[in-house]
Each structure stands twice: as C-alpha cells, then as structure tokens.
C-alpha cells in the first residue's frame, strides 16, 4: 500500500495531524492531547525493524513534540527498546525512516548502565563524559535533580534511585531538546518512583523538553503523561491516561490507596495477540498485525 509518509524524505515531517492523529478507523483512540503546543522533535514513519527475518516492529508511526511526555508501554519483547534504539539510530530499520528536527540534541538514559568497579569513577567525573562541563554546571545539574550530595562519591556506591538521578543530571547537562528515558524508575522503591516521576515532570515544565519514556508497567504510567502509546510489534493503541484512582486496575494494585504522580492507562485495543479472538474487531488499513495473513488484510480493505 502506498502512503504519503513513505515518500517523504528528509525535510519537514509529515504534518503531525495527518501523521499520528489520523483516524484509521480501527476504533482506537489516536487523538493526542497537545500536538499544537510544541514543534515536532522526532518522528518515526512506517518504521519496520526485522531481526533475522523476524519482524520486531511493523510500520510504527510515532511523533514526539517539544513540551510533551509520551510514554511507551507494552509487554516484554513487544519492541519498546527496539523502537527506542531505532529512534536513537543505534539500529537500522529495514523499512520506513526516522526524521529528527535539524540539530536535535537527545539526552538518553539507558535501561541499564552498570559501571564495573574495575573502573574508578566519581559522580563528578562521570558527569563530564564524554564532553567536559564546568564544575559549576555539574553542581547545578546535580542540584536540579536533588542529588547534590553525591558529587564526590564513587558511582558504584550510589543507590538505584540516586544513580538514576545522576544519569538524568548527565543527560540534562547536554542541554537536550528531547529526553529519552528507558524504564527510568525500574529497580527504584515506590517512594523513589513517585519522586522520580515528580522530578521528570518538573524538568519538562522548567525546560520544555520533549520526553519519551518507556514504562515498566503495562497499566500504570506517570500522571503527567500526555500520550500513552501501547506497542506490541506494532502500535496497538494510543491515547491519554485516565487520572482516576477508582479504576479497577488501580484498586487492584493499590487497594484504594491513592498514590500521587501515577495514572492508569485503559487499553482500548479490542484485539488479542494469542490468535483466538484475533480479527473480530474492525481495523482500518493502517492497523494490521505482523502475523496476519496477507489475504485477511486485503479482505478488510
């Protein structure tokens, strides 16, 4: 099938309104909360990634704007990290493309960064990798993430939450337009998670960063998320999270206790991936499954 975006080469991206908010007729909520508030920073168009013939990502479209928080969710092996890596241009897509605003600076916080004790490294030194920053700038960055006390400590001695803050400080020092955070609160206790989410939200307010974040939870996302995108090989659904603490998922998890800073995302896709009830729902031409036979798609169209 021919699509406008496929023919789009370098230059300006396809209009976000045409791109990610297109009504594909599949019944999903594709509407975005505030596409108008910020310019697009990065955009994946029909991004397809294959590993040894297996399709890991199938025609994914995603745009992140300035001053917008987008959270990626999806089960293990759904391709969340693959999408991040493709956006960071660490892997080459087999089809489709990634557009970045000219001169886009990305601050990236990887999912796991273990600094082996065989390498001596203080926080102060770590913040200047790879490019040097003045001590004043480094102190200010640490202060802004609430980790000023770690300055002279070896990075190996930090707690999980402290190290995540240091990683954020290092990303901020690059003066990025876009922050890419791969499961930023994984391995951090609940109190720490809430604080980290609050910090991320404050960073957005202060600096107007676009933030693309991978969540480690399928239902619970950061409350300030503008748009949740659920990935399972393809974009299953997307939309705004619900800020209600009386939804069944929320109650099941927290027993009625309200935890600040979090929200529930209701999955609106009505298809399943186990094959039993597949294709009972009506998808538009843009929504198809990688394992779907070609004929099924043609019938639908």
């Amino acid at each position: 099938m021919v699509r406008e975006v496929a023919s789009q080469k370098n230059g300006s991206p396809t209009s976000p309104l045409l791109q990610s908010e297109v009504d594909c007729g599949c019944g999903h909520d594709h509407s975005s909360v505030n596409p108008a508030s910020g310019e697009p920073l990065i955009q994946a168009s029909d991004l397809t990634v294959e590993f040894g013939g297996r399709v890991a990502l199938d025609q994914v479209n995603l745009t992140v704007h300035r001053n917008e928080i987008v959270t990626l969710i999806g089960p293990n092996g759904a391709g969340k990290s693959t999408l991040i890596r493709a956006l960071l241009q660490a892997i080459r897509p087999s089809k489709g493309e990634v557009w970045r605003r000219h001169g886009l600076v990305i601050g990236y916080v990887p999912q796991r960064l273990n600094i082996d004790p065989i390498m001596p490294m203080t926080v102060e030194r770590f913040l200047s990798i790879p490019s040097p920053h003045s001590l004043a700038d480094r102190k200010e960055a640490l202060l802004s993430v609430g980790a000023a006390q770690t300055l002279e400590q070896p990075v190996q001695s930090l707690s999980g939450g402290e190290f995540q803050r240091v990683l954020l400080a290092r990303a901020i020092l690059r003066k990025p337009d876009l922050l890419v955070l791969d499961e930023p609160v994984q391995g951090v206790d609940f109190q720490g998670q809430t604080e980290l989410y609050r910090l991320i939200s404050r960073l957005r307010e202060q600096n107007g960063f676009g933030i693309l974040m991978v969540s480690h939870d399928l239902h619970i996302v950061m409350a300030e998320t503008d748009r949740v995108v659920c990935i399972n090989g393809h974009v299953c659904c997307s939309g705004a999270p619900t800020q209600v603490s009386d939804s069944p998922e929320y109650l099941a998890l927290f027993g009625g206790q309200t935890k600040p800073g979090l929200a529930v995302y209701h999955h609106l896709h009505d298809h399943s991936h186990d094959g039993t009830e597949a294709h009972q729902h009506i998808h538009g031409s843009d929504c198809h499954h990688p394992d779907e036979p070609e004929t099924a798609r043609k019938e639908r169209n």
Binding site: L88, Y108, P110, L113, M119, P130
Partner: peptide
C-alpha cells in the same frame, strides 16, 4: 580517550550521543 571512555561505559549511549 573521552570517546573510548564513553564507549566502554555504554556502547549504545555513546552511539546515541554521536560518537
């Protein structure tokens, strides 16, 4: 030196930062 240091810490991070 500085690029190799970044690369040794985390290859993907170094790649993402344009090394």
């Amino acid at each position: 030196w500085k690029d190799l240091l970044a690369l040794t810490l985390h290859e993907e991070l170094a790649r993402a930062e344009g090394i």
